[in-house]
Simulated assay, not measured.
Amino acid sequence: MIYFVGAGCGAADLITVRGMKLLQLADVIIYAGSLVNPELLEYAKKSCEIYNSATMTLDEVMEVMLKADKENKTLVRLHTGEPSIYGAVQEQMHILDENGIAYESCPGVSACFGAAAALNLEYTLPEVSQSLIITRMAGRTGVPKKESIESFAAHGASMAIYLSSGMLKELQERLLAGGYREDTPAAIVYKASWPDEGKYICTVGTLAKTGEENEIKNLAVVLVGDVIAKSGYALSKLYDPEFETAFRKPK
């Protein structure tokens, strides 16, 4: 059996209990060595075969998977964060489907949630924002034109922008062009939940300057939106004494 497991955003104890147990059961592990915390490999048994996909091509990764399945071994494909977000898992699953090989997915904690935890932040404050947009800028790989930073910025919602911390000047310009105010709160969270985590509160207008001052070039998620100010929001109706729920009558 093959399992796609989310390693979480950094700290080894942020993997799910299910993910930890799968690592303990695995006969073979292929892990994303460029981003996955190597401490997670300590969960593996001594006999486990371990491969670092940072040095492998898709064909080489799939060769290991197909061989493990043929030998009736349990394989864990350990991806950083939450595999469904920028995890490049679908192309692997497609090949497994073509070969009639069964697989399952185990979710993980994505970087934007590690960043929110670092800032004690809620993305969905009533009457401020009820949406979170997860996106990235085009770099060496493209982004559909309909998903431009400007088009998303026009909503004024909470945003988590991945894989763009090396392009903060351009990102700042495009956020402003899309409609965010210069004083819109923003934050840069570097390596959320790692021991060397860094968190920097700023504004959209000072995003590039903040990144430069703190030498941020990669491994950071950029957060944008009025929720970062933690003010001007309404209280949740869920706990309002006059609001009726399936579990509580209004008082």
Rank of each mutant, 00 (worst) to 15 (best):
V224W: 04
Y233T: 06
D196E: 15
P144S: 13
S158W: 03
T124K: 03
A154T: 06
Y239W: 08
M159F: 03
E127V: 14
L175K: 09
R174S: 01
L223Y: 00
K199C: 03
V221K: 05
E150A: 12
K169T: 13
P195W: 10
Y239V: 15
E197A: 11
Q130T: 15
T184S: 08
E127N: 15
E147H: 09
I149S: 10
G232L: 08
S148Q: 01
A220Q: 02
A138L: 02
Y123N: 04
Q172E: 13
P144L: 11
Q130N: 15
E150F: 08
A186G: 01
G142E: 15
E215W: 06
Y162Q: 09
A157I: 08
E127K: 15
R174D: 05
G205Q: 04
I133F: 13
I134V: 15
L176M: 12
G211E: 10
V204P: 02
L125K: 12
T210R: 10
E147K: 13
L207I: 10
I133H: 14
V221L: 08
G211V: 07
L168V: 00
K217Q: 14
G178D: 07
E173F: 02
Q130C: 14
G211N: 12
Y180S: 04
T141H: 13
N218F: 07
L223A: 02
A192L: 00
S131F: 02
V143W: 08
A177W: 06
A186Y: 06
S129Q: 06
F152I: 01
S129E: 00
L168P: 04
S131E: 14
G232S: 14
E197T: 09
L175H: 00
Q172F: 06
L207M: 04
E182H: 14
K191P: 00
I161F: 07
S231I: 09
G178K: 10
K237W: 07
A229Q: 10
Y123S: 09
A187W: 04
E182K: 15
A186C: 00
T135S: 03
K199G: 08
S193H: 04
L238Q: 15
I161A: 04
G142N: 15
P126R: 08
T184Q: 08
A160D: 05
T135E: 00
K237I: 10
V227S: 11
L235T: 13
L175Y: 03
V189I: 14
A208H: 11
I134S: 11
Y239R: 15
A160W: 00
F152K: 08
E147R: 06
K191M: 06
A229V: 05
A160H: 05
K237P: 00
I228W: 01
T203F: 00
K199W: 06
T184F: 03
G179L: 02
T141C: 11
M137N: 09
A192K: 01
I149T: 08
T206D: 09
E215A: 15
V143Q: 14
S165P: 04
A229F: 02
T210G: 12
Y200W: 12
G142Q: 15
A160Q: 06
T184V: 11
